[in-house]
Structures are given as structure tokens and as C-alpha cells.
């Protein structure tokens, strides 16, 4: 049962990801963005399977809810017609790149499948486990990871300043 769900979600994720980079309906980036949302939802499902409830929620909220919306917003703002996008130009260098990526991925997957330690299924969690809940993750975040957490606020501030500088018409 579990495996079935895994396979459905996995195939869904991969298919929708591929749809991002090879959109089924032309080269319109809107379709890419929509495929991305789908991929994110599938991923959220996978995260739930991994008992990462908080991250799954964040995934939907931030990625699907905020980032992709931002993407769509920009696409709409730019109002790019698909004829503006020009035709795809497959070049030799890109081909080389794809081959290199394929090679690297295959080797990495080979590593992963070869390793016996990784073939073990994970230990079961107790039924009353608080694993992956807001409470436990938050606890870590405010103790062991307090410094990077605080620094993230600076990062977001810098990003806001940066976005304003780069995008605002008149400063």
C-alpha cells in the first residue's frame, strides 16, 4: 500500500517536474509555473510520507502559495507572449551539458543503489511520536539553530532591499 502511494507520488513529482522544463503545451512559462505547483504538491505529499508535517505545510504555504504565485505574478506583469520567446536553440554545448548531467546522475544513483546501508527501510516511529511536528522542530530552531535562524532574518531583509533596488522603477 505504502509503496503504491510512494510510486504514485514519485511518478507524479517526476512527471510534473519534467513538465516544468519540457512544458506539454508550448513554451509558455505559465504552464511551467503551473507544473511547478503540481510538483510542489506532490512533493508535499512525499514529505508527509516522511513524517515531515511541518515542512510539508511550509512547502505548500511558501513554495506553492508564495513563490510560485510570485512567479506567475511576474509572468503576468511582463506579459510575455509565447512568440516573444523565440524558438529553442539546441546547441552542442547544451547537449554536452545534458550528457554530463546524465552521467553524473547515473553515477550518483549507482552509488545510492549500491550502498547496502541505504537499502534498509527506516526504523518505525512510536505511534505517539512527536516527530516532525511544529513543537519539536521549533524547539530545535530556537535552541541549536538560533544563530542561523536569526541570521535568516538578516537574509530576508537583504533580499527585500535587493528586490526593491532591482525592481522599483523610481527610487
Amino acid at each position: 500500500m505504502e509503496q503504491v502511494i510512494f510510486w504514485i507520488l514519485a511518478i507524479g513529482t517526476v512527471a510534473s517536474s519534467v513538465a516544468v522544463i519540457v512544458p506539454p503545451m508550448g513554451r509558455n512559462p505559465v504552464h511551467g509555473a503551473l507544473s511547478l505547483v503540481v510538483a510542489f504538491f506532490f512533493l508535499a505529499g512525499l514529505y508527509v510520507m516522511l513524517v515531515a508535517h511541518l515542512v510539508a505545510v511550509l512547502q505548500v504555504l511558501i513554495y506553492a502559495g508564495a513563490i510560485v504565485v510570485l512567479f506567475l505574478f511576474v509572468i503576468m506583469l511582463l506579459n510575455i507572449q509565447s512568440e516573444d520567446l523565440g524558438h529553442p536553440r539546441p546547441t552542442i554545448s547544451k547537449l554536452i551539458g545534458v550528457i554530463a548531467v546524465g552521467f553524473v546522475s547515473i553515477v550518483l544513483i549507482g552509488f545510492i543503489l549500491k550502498d547496502k546501508g541505504m537499502a534498509e527501510p527506516p526504523v518505525g516511529l512510536p505511534s505517539d511520536s512527536t516527530f516532525g511536528t511544529v513543537k519539536t522542530v521549533g524547539n530545535l530552531l530556537y535552541t541549536s539553530y538560533i544563530v542561523p535562524f536569526e541570521l535568516t532574518s538578516i537574509l530576508l531583509l537583504v533580499a527585500v532591499i535587493g528586490a526593491v533596488i532591482m525592481a522599483k522603477r523610481r527610487l
Partner: peptide, 22 residues
């Protein structure tokens, strides 16, 4: 000047590393 060509160079570098280190 094409940014993607630069990315390809990086990936090829990665592939060479993988080839020698695997």
C-alpha cells in the same frame, strides 16, 4: 557571454570530478 554555457562548463567540471573520484 551565454550564461548557460558557463553553467555547462561547471557541470562538465562536475562530471570530470565524478569520473575521477568514483
Amino acid at each position: 557571454g551565454e550564461v548557460q554555457r558557463y553553467a555547462v562548463a561547471m557541470v562538465v567540471g562536475l562530471a570530470v570530478l565524478v569520473y575521477f573520484l568514483k
